[in-house]
Design a protein around this nucleic acid. Sequence first.
DNA 1: AATCGGCATCGAAGCGCTTCGACAACCTAT
DNA 2: ATAGGTTGTCGAAGCGCTTCGATGCCGATT
Lengths: 337, 337
Amino acid sequence: MVTLAEVAQHAGVSASTVSYVLSGKRSISANTRQRVERSIRELGYHPNAGARALASSKSNIIALMIPLRTDMYVPVMMEIAIAVATSARTHGYDVLLLTGEEGPDAVRRVAGSGLADGMILMDVELDDERLPLLRATDQPSVLIGLPADTSGLTCVDLDFRATGALCVEHLAKQGHHDIAVIGEAPAVYERHTGFAERTLDGLRSRGRELGVRMLHRPCEGGYDAMAVTLARILDERPDTSGIIVQNESAVEPLLALLRQQGRAVPEDVSVVAICPDQVATQASVRLTSVAIPAQEMGRHAVDHLVAKLEGRGSDEVVLIAPELTVRTSTGPAPSRP
Amino acid sequence: MVTLAEVAQHAGVSASTVSYVLSGKRSISANTRQRVERSIRELGYHPNAGARALASSKSNIIALMIPLRTDMYVPVMMEIAIAVATSARTHGYDVLLLTGEEGPDAVRRVAGSGLADGMILMDVELDDERLPLLRATDQPSVLIGLPADTSGLTCVDLDFRATGALCVEHLAKQGHHDIAVIGEAPAVYERHTGFAERTLDGLRSRGRELGVRMLHRPCEGGYDAMAVTLARILDERPDTSGIIVQNESAVEPLLALLRQQGRAVPEDVSVVAICPDQVATQASVRLTSVAIPAQEMGRHAVDHLVAKLEGRGSDEVVLIAPELTVRTSTGPAPSRP
DNA sequence: AATCGGCATCGAAGCGCTTCGACAACCTAT
DNA sequence: ATAGGTTGTCGAAGCGCTTCGATGCCGATT
């Protein structure tokens, strides 16, 4: 293993000079810089991460905490995680992956040991148990998702309230008056997950303003659950002509069931989904949808965290504006007999 | 930030004693041990990760490299990653997440900087560009997936050859003679991904032994691609009565298309899937399937890597035996007119 | 009584880096 | 010609920990 000292010797300079070449914190003559850089290349030198962390009290590592909840849609999580890892690298940071297993203690461990310089928390609940600890350790952090109390925190999320509103508007504009909302699994609501509640909120308040009737039903993923849910909805509100789905694993079952029952999309029923674009475009009907901007969320989170770590940046809540893409699953409401 | 020295002072012992209490590398009297442990608790001490890494040349970090290929089924990757992170913790290791972005250089960087003690590579290709580097740096590592040349490497994977064989056997036993195989996207085969080729190999050689006709067609995910592929298959081999799918995003489209064409599953066509259990159970027909044991693979990989890091364990290839679960998508072949 | 081995503890060295103050050497402005 | 300011480089101190050898103490062995 090549050390700084060896590079210094090889280049005929002192160790500190090499260090300054690497960090750029003091000016170095072009000549010396080149000699040092050459030695680094020839010897294949890589600074030792531990020594660096010890001397500078900076690990250049960002911790990413992903609680493993089985009812969350995994690909989105993954996409965010990948985006976080990738953009972290562009800032010179690596990413440490923490799962929910360890629970809130992970926050304490990481903050205490100086393992990471900051952390990004995913899948934040409205009243998340990790938050008190976060505030106490004043560990620089960014949340993906919105808790109830955001004071002193930096959060990044899709504006789910606006998302809900946008979906209703789109349907209402096409003349739909009876709209059903197929939501996430009941457990998600029971857990008070921010995004689910905020979507619902946006959906309802905009629906009230526009004078449309709204019926919300949570739904586990999969075929059988969807069949039951859909039957209940159509039983309660036979005139339902618009459906908004916020549950990736309910999308395809829903379409299949509608087809099976002879209800054409979009002629008889319009469907709007809140889901990743991939799901919307790969479904059996190309779905009008509001995309979950996973990459963007990951990138934003990293950018804000890095800003904080560098002393720039402050606490704030960043809500990403939703965008609705019209595809072939929505159309004018059928005229009533 | 509390340091070892402060703990030592508080407990009235020397720093080295505290260190030995922590590591257990020398015997300590019960009395002293308790005093030290008490001080640690009272002061809320956490050893500094950087200092530890520097002094011991061990970071207690495992690097997990996930190339981001858009055509791989993401949830499986995620499940493995989570399993890796979780079981790493039980061995006292944390996990560093590396994406494919950086390419093979990441291997060099991580090995060179001592950032991680070892690494786990996912989604290994038959002729993976990271392998030469791996061998050169003699970084302790475990691969998930099998390259063409496994000499000097430790690999963990599902036995895809046996998986293929198992699927054919199951169908053949039920009297199916004309079997179609719907595979991964063409790009996967072009890239020479080990698992895809080995499955095919197992499929074909067992098929030959059993005297069944076999037709393999790669298939992009999604509805439209599946429609084209299925049409071609039924055109070429109208008597096809068994289908084996190894492509998660083709599963539901396939079922929907069969239904649409009035082919009943399993009365007219039997379907066997190679996919995670979740996909098999949530599909519109409960699928007879061979599961991808993601968790088990992650766990095995970590166990083997940790064994290597501790000086136990050697290079070997661990193939996990496939298990076929019979559900409702397979049955006897229809009798021919 | 002298010797030995094992246990419990301590002190000091050092892991590889960053960073601060010092100091030549040079370049202006007086 | 001299004070003052830059610029480029070096030496040394230390970051918080692990680990090696040394040491003092005790009971067991001859």
